[in-house]
Simulated scan of single mutants.
Amino acid sequence: MFKILLPTSLLLGLLAASLPCQAAISDAEAVNRAGMQRMLGQRIAKSYLMIGTDTRVDLAASQLDSSIASVEENAQLLDEYAANDAIRKALEDATQTWHQYRQLALTQPDREQSAELLRLAERFLGQSEALVQEIERHSGSQAARLVNRSGRQRMLSQRIAMLYLAMTWKLPEQRLRGDFDAAVAEFERGLDELNKAPQNTEQINRQLDQIGAQWRFARAGFSLADDARFVPTVIVTTSDSLLRKIEQLTLDYERLAGSSR
Results as ranks from 00 to 15, higher is better:
3 K>G: 14
5 L>M: 10
8 T>H: 13
10 L>C: 11
11 L>E: 12
13 G>L: 02
13 G>Y: 02
14 L>P: 03
16 A>D: 07
17 A>P: 02
18 S>E: 09
22 Q>S: 11
25 I>Q: 04
26 S>G: 02
28 A>Q: 06
29 E>C: 09
30 A>I: 03
31 V>H: 00
34 A>R: 00
35 G>D: 00
35 G>S: 00
36 M>S: 12
40 L>H: 00
42 Q>V: 03
43 R>V: 00
44 I>V: 03
44 I>Y: 00
46 K>I: 07
47 S>R: 01
47 S>N: 03
48 Y>L: 00
51 I>L: 09
53 T>R: 02
55 T>Q: 03
57 V>S: 11
57 V>C: 08
57 V>G: 05
61 A>C: 07
74 N>R: 04
76 Q>C: 15
78 L>K: 02
81 Y>L: 06
82 A>P: 09
83 A>T: 14
86 A>K: 12
88 R>C: 10
89 K>G: 07
97 T>M: 04
97 T>Q: 08
99 H>R: 11
100 Q>N: 15
102 R>G: 09
109 P>A: 04
109 P>Y: 02
118 L>G: 02
120 L>N: 03
120 L>S: 03
121 A>D: 01
126 G>T: 09
128 S>E: 00
129 E>S: 11
130 A>I: 08
134 E>R: 08
136 E>G: 08
136 E>Q: 12
137 R>K: 11
140 G>K: 05
141 S>T: 10
142 Q>L: 14
144 A>D: 15
151 G>Q: 04
156 L>Q: 05
156 L>V: 04
157 S>G: 05
158 Q>K: 02
158 Q>D: 01
161 A>I: 03
161 A>T: 05
165 L>T: 02
167 M>P: 04
170 K>S: 11
171 L>E: 03
172 P>I: 03
173 E>R: 14
174 Q>E: 13
176 L>E: 03
181 D>R: 11
182 A>E: 05
183 A>C: 05
185 A>Q: 08
189 R>G: 08
190 G>K: 08
193 E>R: 12
195 N>E: 12
197 A>N: 06
201 T>G: 09
202 E>P: 14
203 Q>L: 15
206 R>V: 12
208 L>P: 10
210 Q>C: 13
212 G>F: 03
213 A>L: 11
217 F>P: 13
218 A>K: 05
220 A>I: 15
223 S>R: 13
224 L>Y: 14
228 A>I: 11
229 R>Q: 14
230 F>C: 06
232 P>N: 06
232 P>L: 06
233 T>V: 13
236 V>D: 03
237 T>K: 07
243 L>K: 01
243 L>T: 00
243 L>G: 04
245 K>S: 14
251 L>C: 07
251 L>G: 13
252 D>I: 12
256 L>M: 09
259 S>A: 15
